[in-house]
Amino acid sequence: MACSVSDTPSLKDLPKVATDLKSQLEGFNTSCLRDVDTNEKIVLPSAEDVATEKTQKSLFDGIEKFDSSQLKHTETQEKNPLPDKDAIEAEKEKNKFLNGIENFDPTKLKHTETCEKNPLPTKDVIEQEKSA
């Protein structure tokens, strides 16, 4: 949208500045101002930051614009060596052993009586040994 000459306000339409304010502004003495050091809050990136960002951008551009038609076709060879006969037999033995433990049936056990063949000494025998 372009501004034409007719869109700009005329001098009489502009706001008027009070004469006392105008005279104060014109007669303002800048030597009354204090010296102040300005601290910039916005820190610009260092040269290293800019270089790092350029490197990353070039990497991303390379990935996005990569031409996959330049790749060569390859055949994948799957290598899955099967275990030898000895390893299979050892695993079968282990599985039979574990299966025997897991499926143990205690009801097939015979009942037995425990006979103590090494009886402990009586109090009398202990007293005799102490006194001897």
Rank of each mutant, 00 (worst) to 15 (best):
L21W: 07
D84S: 02
N103Q: 12
E116D: 15
T52M: 11
K57W: 10
F28E: 05
T8E: 14
N39P: 04
P83V: 06
L11Q: 14
D67M: 02
T74F: 15
L11H: 09
M1A: 13
K57C: 08
P121L: 06
C115M: 15
I126A: 02
D7R: 02
N95H: 13
L59A: 05
E116N: 15
E116I: 10
E91R: 05
L14Y: 03
D35I: 09
K130H: 03
L25S: 03
K117Q: 14
A47G: 09
I63S: 04
E40W: 08
E93N: 15
V125M: 04
R34H: 12
L59F: 12
E64N: 15
G27I: 05
Q128T: 12
D49G: 04
Q24P: 03
E48Q: 11
E48K: 08
T122H: 06
D67V: 03
T30M: 14
E75Q: 12
L82T: 10
P9G: 01
G100L: 00
T38F: 13
K72M: 06
L59H: 06
I88T: 05
N29A: 04
S68P: 06
P121V: 00
T76Q: 08
T38R: 11
A2S: 12
N80V: 10
D61K: 11
D84L: 04
K94G: 07
K108A: 09
T38N: 04
E102P: 00
K117L: 14
V17K: 08
D86T: 09
K92W: 02
E116L: 07
A51W: 01
D124W: 01
K130F: 00
K96D: 12
D61E: 13
L21G: 05
